[in-house]
């Protein structure tokens, strides 16, 4: 069952398309990473899902509820953490969470225990009586995450939750998200720190200029980089001739000469890959290394977002 269904979502600001026919389905219990350069439409998409923005076209549902027609039902289901957010001065961490618990109509008797549990979950149990404006940025981010959880939502929409954090705070935030994953929450998370997203997410969607340019598991998206595998071919001699040979070879999308070896983008299957190795050896080259380089998410992101431009 899909927790989030986005169909042909479009949002226009003046003449600029923030989202253009954006379609995405997110299964319940999955952690979905939304990647894209600045201005790609990630925050717009998340704001629409959080019922903070009306789309100009298309539909979006969360838990089966339409975000435009049934915003109240959607709000009960989601925990939303915006990319930029503030905290209230003059409130203690526990009061801050109790305030939001009350705003979600959690019975007064349950709030103290809930607040305690949530502060423990985000490692802020020792900050219960600290005024929120005095917390560090990393602590505020974790507190905001705890705030998202006060009504135990099934879906979390986290817009750049780790932005601006130092490595330690990022690691702590990552750990909390892992815990939430274990709690079987559906999480839509956007981030610029791609290796971290690859670690945390089951699926990745890449947005560019409001369009979805890739969507799938982290492995699929990474492998789908230009629809090709990256091969490293290291030969003992005549590298220039090898590059020339590879350039004219069917299935080779591109060839880059590195000092001492060649890197090719190969679109053929594994059999064709074996045949290529045999042909190279048959033509007299001494092959020192013939291996597939695993592309990472960053490569995929750079390649796919570059393609749109």
């Amino acid at each position: 069952m899909n927790a989030i269904e986005i169909k042909s979502l479009t949002k226009v600001y003046g003449t600029n398309y923030a989202l253009r026919e954006f379609t995405l389905n997110i299964e319940a219990g999955r952690v979905y990473g939304l990647i894209g350069p600045n201005g790609a439409g990630k925050t717009t998409a998340m704001s629409i899902l959080a019922t903070l923005l009306a789309p100009d076209g298309g539909t979006a549902t969360v838990g089966g509820y339409d975000v435009v027609k049934e915003p109240a039902a959607v709000r009960r289901l989601i925990g939303y953490m915006p990319d930029f957010f503030g905290v209230y001065d003059g409130l203690k961490a526990s009061e801050y969470l109790e305030f939001y618990a009350a705003a979600y109509r959690i019975p007064a008797g349950e709030r103290p225990r809930l607040t305690r549990d949530l502060l423990e979950l985000v490692n802020l149990a020792d900050k219960t009586d600290t005024y929120v404006d005095l917390l560090s940025r990393g602590m505020k981010q974790r507190l905001a995450l705890a705030r998202c959880l006060v009504h135990d939502p099934a879906v979390l929409i986290l817009d750049e939750p780790a932005s601006g954090l130092d490595p330690r705070a990022r690691a702590e935030m990552k750990e909390v998200i892992r815990q939430l994953r274990r709690m079987n929450k559906t999480i839509l998370i956007s981030s610029h720190i791609l290796p971290e997203l690859a670690e945390m997410c089951d699926n990745i969607a890449i947005l560019e200029q409001g369009r979805l340019v890739a969507n799938g598991t982290v492995e699929e998206v990474t492998a789908a980089r230009q629809g090709a595998r990256i091969l490293k071919i290291d030969v003992a001699e005549k590298l220039t001739e090898l590059i020339e040979f590879l350039n004219n070879r069917p299935g080779v999308a591109s060839v880059d000469g590195e000092p001492g070896w060649a890197r090719i983008s190969f679109t053929g299957n594994k059999t064709a890959q074996g045949q290529l190795l045999r042909d190279i050896m048959d033509r007299g080259w001494t092959v020192l290394e013939f291996a597939e380089i695993k592309g990472n998410l960053e490569d995929a992101f750079m390649a796919m977002t570059g393609e749109v431009e």
Partner: peptide, 13 residues
């Protein structure tokens, strides 16, 4: 301006 409004609007209030 404090960037607290959006979060408030996503609550049940």
């Amino acid at each position: 301006e404090r960037q607290t409004l959006n979060v408030l609007l996503t609550t049940e209030l």
